[in-house]
Amino acid sequence: MNKYLILCVDDERDVLDGVIQDLDCFEEHFIVEAAESVAEAKNIISNSIEDHIKLALILCDHIMPEQTGISFLIELSQEAQTKTSRKVLLTGQAGLDDTVEAVNHSSLDYFIAKPWKGNELREVLTEQLTQFMIENEPDLMPWASILDTEKIFNAIADNRVSFGE
């Protein structure tokens, strides 16, 4: 299986630790990294790209010191290496205008309000990662036991039908 990165970005360490703890179920099959700033996140993404590890999903807070989460997600949606990554905003402070801007720039796949519930967060990320794999991974079979099995099998069946035509 190819290696994929899940990156969590939040300037509050306790929030970041909580998110990472909620994502421990993904650590066996994904590289799960945490960043306390956009600059640190950019460094992690750059190093991952050098190591041929694709950014599958980024979970990002909005209000951060040097750059807002939404402007960072918009930036990532315009970069060739991160354009297809699933982008999830986890925040309690993004206003309607900010969120609309992100949606209009096709740089936001999902919005989760703080405080979040661990099981809901895992469900959303499973859904987003399933969609990412269907759109980006040629060999879906290994992901069927890890992500949304039904959607993965449907995508495999659809691919067989389209190749058979």
Rank of each mutant, 00 (worst) to 15 (best):
D51M: 09
A102M: 12
I44R: 04
A41H: 00
S48G: 05
I70N: 10
I58A: 02
G92A: 12
Q78I: 01
G95Q: 11
K54M: 13
S37P: 12
I74N: 07
V88E: 05
Q78G: 05
Q81D: 13
L73E: 06
S77P: 03
V88H: 00
E79I: 09
S71R: 10
V38F: 09
F72Q: 01
I53V: 15
A94N: 02
E36W: 06
E36P: 08
I44T: 09
N43F: 06
L59F: 12
A41V: 00
E101M: 13
C60G: 08
T82N: 12
E101V: 10
E66L: 10
I53C: 14
T82L: 07
L96N: 07
T82D: 03
Q81Y: 08
S46E: 15
S48K: 00
E101K: 15
D98Q: 01
I49V: 15
I74R: 10
T68I: 03
F72I: 03
R86F: 04
N47W: 06
A41S: 13
V38C: 06
V88C: 09
A56Y: 12
I49Q: 12
I70M: 07
S48V: 02
T91P: 02
H62V: 05
C60V: 13
E66I: 13
S77M: 09
A56G: 11
E79N: 11
K83R: 11
E40H: 09
H52K: 08
R86G: 10
L76E: 15
K83I: 03
D61Y: 02
E40A: 12
D61K: 02
S48T: 10
H62E: 03
T91I: 05
S48P: 07
S77L: 04
L96A: 13
E101S: 15
E50C: 11
P65I: 14
S37A: 05
A39P: 11
L89W: 11
A41K: 06
L76M: 13
D97S: 07
A102N: 04
G95V: 06
R86E: 07
L59V: 11
G92T: 03
A102S: 08
L59Q: 03
T84Y: 00
D98Y: 00
C60W: 02
L59Y: 11
I70H: 08
I58R: 01
M64Q: 05
P65S: 06
K87S: 07
L57A: 13
T91L: 01
L57M: 12
I45M: 13
T91F: 04
T99K: 02
I74L: 09
D97K: 06
A41Q: 00
L96Q: 13
Q67T: 15
E50N: 12
E40M: 12
G69C: 05
S71H: 08
S48H: 13
E66M: 07
L57N: 15
Q81I: 04
Q78L: 11
A39E: 13
T99W: 00
K42G: 09
L73W: 00
A80P: 10
K42E: 14
N43L: 09
A102C: 13
S71E: 14
I70P: 09
L89N: 01
E36M: 12
S77F: 01
K83D: 11
D61M: 03
H62T: 02
G95K: 05
V88F: 04
D97Y: 05
E50H: 10
I63W: 01
A41D: 02
A94D: 01
A102Y: 04
V38D: 02
I63C: 08
H62G: 00
A80T: 08
H52E: 15
G92Q: 10
Q78K: 15
